[in-house]
C-alpha cells in the first residue's frame, strides 16, 4: 500500500491513510500551486539585473531560485504569491510588478 503523500487523496479511506497523518517524505507541499493566489506578478528585466541577489533571500515563497552558478534564475510562478518584496528591494529597478492576467 502506498505511503506517498501524492496518494493521500481526499477520497482515500481510513485504512489506506498513513498512520497518524504522518508523512514519510520531505517537501511534499511542492505539489501545491500557490501562484494562483497572485494578483500582481513580478517580471524581471534581465538587462537591468546585475545578479546582486538581494531579491533572493527576501522571498517568502522560495520563488527566486539561485542556480549552482550562483546566479538567480527566473521566478517560479508556480509558488510566487506576488507580494512584491523583491521588486521593492531591487536597487536597479530590474523587477516590475505587473497585473497578472490569467
Amino acid at each position: 500500500m502506498s505511503q506517498l503523500a501524492k496518494d493521500m487523496t481526499p477520497s482515500i479511506t481510513w485504512k489506506e491513510m498513513t498512520m497518524g497523518c504522518n508523512i514519510y517524505e520531505g517537501g511534499t507541499s511542492e505539489m501545491v500551486e500557490t501562484g494562483d493566489w497572485r494578483t500582481n506578478k513580478p517580471v524581471l528585466d534581465w538587462d537591468k539585473c546585475k545578479q546582486c541577489l538581494l531579491c533572493a533571500p527576501v522571498c517568502p515563497d522560495l520563488s527566486i531560485p539561485v542556480g549552482k552558478d550562483g546566479k538567480r534564475e527566473d521566478f517560479n510562478y508556480f509558488f510566487c504569491k506576488g507580494c512584491g518584496i523583491c521588486a521593492n528591494v531591487c536597487p536597479f529597478g530590474a523587477i516590475t510588478m505587473v497585473k497578472d492576467e490569467k
Binding site: 481510513w14 491513510m17 497518524g20
Partner: peptide
C-alpha cells in the same frame, strides 16, 4: 477531509 479518517484509524 482527513480528520475523521484519522480518528477511525485510531
Amino acid at each position: 477531509v482527513y480528520y475523521m479518517e484519522a480518528k477511525r484509524q485510531q
